[in-house]
């Protein structure tokens, strides 16, 4: 993708999302309620980890701050993923009603529109304090400059994996007309990354590391930050993420060919 095209899509994204966010807050008190709900849930889980580790001292060999860092990294990737890819949750009606046809006729990638075309306004508010929390707890772990670099790369890789998952969900939606349950399964699976994957036993641990790469998406970045992943591990994770992303794009292209526009 060249710079001109990138700017073109950035401009579309801005128009589709950011410009719509403030009016949403002005006219929809439900969003405020959902925002409060998300904050309460985050606080409850954070409190649970704090009190649990106060009682046990370690969890699978990790200290309180390390466990909190895993939890925060999970939230960071999950919330940014939800912020960016919320439109996926609204895809099914478009397929059922056939309004997806209108998207196909527009001069832009239909995948871009249905993947990134409807950012979640509530998450725009939760992301900045979350980044500050990650920074604060991360600082307590005394990371090296290289570990921070690895972390940033692997968090981005986690978002690429998250994008790949969402593209797979969209593609399956076209073929099966089912989105909601697939997304719920994805969200439940990702939820397994709230804690370090070391708590899981084999073969589940390998399954959620390599087959459904929740571990690569969430646990590996946090481990790299703690200096527990070597450069080969970092490179392998990035290559895996890219391969999964390419695979999801191929699946999307395949699914798009199966779209019949039956309801329109």
């Amino acid at each position: 993708m060249n710079i001109k095209k990138f700017k073109y899509y950035l401009r579309i994204w801005w128009h589709l999302n950011v410009k719509n966010i403030l009016p949403v807050f002005n006219h929809n008190p439900t969003i405020i309620v959902f925002l409060i709900g998300k904050i309460i849930r985050f606080t409850f889980f954070g409190g649970f980890i704090y009190f649990l580790l106060k009682g046990t001292n370690t969890l699978a060999g990790y200290s309180l701050n390390q466990t909190l860092f895993f939890f925060l990294t999970f939230n960071l990737i999950d919330i940014i993923g939800q912020f960016l890819f919320r439109e996926v949750y609204r895809f099914r009606p478009q397929i059922i009603s056939g309004t997806f046809d209108f998207i196909l006729t527009k001069p832009m990638s239909p995948l871009f529109r249905v993947l990134l075309g409807g950012a979640d306004a509530t998450d725009l508010i939760t992301i900045p304090p979350l980044v500050i929390l990650v920074w604060y707890i991360g600082n307590l772990l005394n990371p090296s400059g290289l570990a921070i670099f690895y972390y940033v790369i692997l968090v981005l890789n986690g978002l690429v994996i998250s994008a790949a998952f969402h593209i797979l969900v969209l593609a399956m939606g076209i073929i099966t007309l089912e989105i909601d349950h697939t997304v719920m399964i994805y969200r439940d699976l990702v939820g397994l990354g709230r804690f370090p994957i070391d708590i899981y036993k084999e073969p589940l641990r390998s399954l959620i590391t390599f087959i459904v790469p929740i571990g690569l998406m969430i646990s590996i970045p946090a481990k790299a930050f703690m200096g527990l992943i070597n450069p080969i591990g970092v490179i392998s994770s990035v290559l895996f993420g890219m391969a999964l992303f390419m695979l999801s794009l191929q699946f999307w292209k395949y699914a798009l060919k199966k779209y019949t526009s039956a309801s329109s």
């Binding site: 929809n28 959902f34 849930r41």
Partner: peptide
């Protein structure tokens, strides 16, 4: 307008956590 919002906060978050259904 808060039909689902109130349910979300009270039934899906506060009640679930404070009931001991999560831990």
């Amino acid at each position: 307008e808060l039909a689902w919002g109130a349910q979300f906060i009270f039934m899906m978050i506060i009640t679930e956590f404070l009931s001991g259904a999560v831990f």
